[in-house]
Every structure is written in structure tokens, then in C-alpha cells.
Amino acid sequence: MSWLWVFVGGMAGAAARYLVDHAVKARADTPFPWGTLTVNVLGCAILGVLTGLSAHGGVPEAVRLTLGVGLCGALTTYSTFSYETLTLAEAGERRAAVVNVLVSVAAGVGALLGAAALAGSW
């Protein structure tokens, strides 16, 4: 049964990533990968909330698998993040590539740590 939760969550997460990326790209006409940055920070924040809540033991295994491993896991991506960074660097946008890495890591990890601390203190 656990496989099904991960699969369903992964399907929803990847589809949501595609749709959000599309929507962000349609609004921000720039080579900077705002869409991937948005989904990565959003997914880290949701996983942070789950992590904070589970510190009290309040998150059932099926929810952790569906939302944590499946949805947040697939809503966020490392492969597209690295490829878009490489594309920026190869296009001569070295500074934008470095900024993308620093902002993605700081905002993504920061969102998870912050959300986990907030949700854990409830």
C-alpha cells in the first residue's frame, strides 16, 4: 500500500511542478529559472510543516508517504535545478547561475528549517 501513496503523491507533485513552472514562466519573461525556484521553495516549506508536525508524532505514515515522499519529493527537483543552472552558465550568464544556486539552496533549506521550527512549536 505504501507504494501506492508514494506513486499518487509523486504524480500530483510532478504535475503541479509542471503547471506552476508554466504559470511562472508566462509571467516572468526572463531566462532566470523562477519557476523551478518557486516549486522548490514551496515544496521545502510544505515538507518543513510536515516535519515539524511529525515531531509531536501527529502525522500518519500514509500522509508522510503521500505528501512528504511523494508530493513534496516530486514537486521539488534537483535535476531541473542543476540543468537550468548549467544552461545559464553555458549561455554566459555565470553570475545568474551562481545566484540561482545560492538563492535556491538558501531559500529552499531556509524554508524547510523555518517551517519545521514554526510547525514544531505549535
Binding site: 510532478a14 521539488t76 527537483t77
Partner: peptide
Amino acid sequence: PFLGIGVLGGFTSFSAYAFDVH
């Protein structure tokens, strides 16, 4: 879309990376 955005995008994970740091 299937292999790049779907399979590889769903396989790799930024949130799991951030979770490991936490």
C-alpha cells in the same frame, strides 16, 4: 516531458535534500 520533467524530476528531490540537512 515524460523522462525529463516527470521521471528525473520526480526521482530527484530538493525537499528531501533540505530535509537531510535539517
